[in-house]
């Protein structure tokens, strides 16, 4: 059942990415490139994506998941919620997020849309995903070996 739920949630999530425009690199760049404000061509619509997502996620988390997790209750199909346990705002978090932002702004693709767009098997997207997996592998090894990040895997 967990796997059917995961598949269904993946379809919902991916459809949302497509509908919102987040899966379209040109749209993402049109949002991130704020210099377009000067010419009046800046596209703010992606702000609405995050707003829509949070409008659903935040209240249900606060009203259902958080109280249940505090009462040691679990989700429907598992014994407990698998929530991140890290709290520290540390160097790996900031440096990693900065590197991710740098890469995201270059092309306009982040991990979710890369997988959604992979369905078309276009060569550029395949290359991007292969490079992304290579980067993730390097990052994983760094997390394991560098003392700074050794304890910070989620």
């Amino acid at each position: 059942m967990k796997k059917i739920v995961a598949l269904f949630c993946g379809v919902l999530f991916g459809t949302g990415l497509m509908l919102s425009g987040l899966a379209d690199p040109a749209k993402v760049i049109g949002f991130l490139n704020v210099s377009l404000m000067l010419s009046g061509e800046w596209d703010p619509t992606l702000l609405f994506v995050m707003s829509g997502g949070l409008a659903v996620y935040l209240p249900l988390y606060l009203l259902v998941v958080k109280p249940r997790a505090q009462a040691k209750l679990g989700p429907v199909f598992d014994k407990c919620y698998h929530l991140p346990s890290k709290r520290a705002i540390d160097a790996p978090l900031v440096i990693g997020s900065a590197l991710f932002g740098l890469g995201w702004g270059m092309i306009g693709i982040c991990p979710g849309p890369s997988i959604v767009n992979l369905a078309h098997l276009d060569l550029p997207m395949v290359l991007f995903v292969v490079a992304m997996i290579a980067g993730a592998y390097i990052g994983r090894q760094m997390n394991r070996t560098l003392p700074l990040t050794a304890s910070s895997r989620q």
Binding site: C110, P111, G112, A136, I138, T149
Partner: peptide
């Protein structure tokens, strides 16, 4: 871009989602 996205998300424990 792909390498930076993969590397950054791994070190920074997450992405846009």
């Amino acid at each position: 871009s792909g390498v930076l996205v993969g590397l950054g998300c791994a070190i920074g424990s997450g992405c846009t989602s």
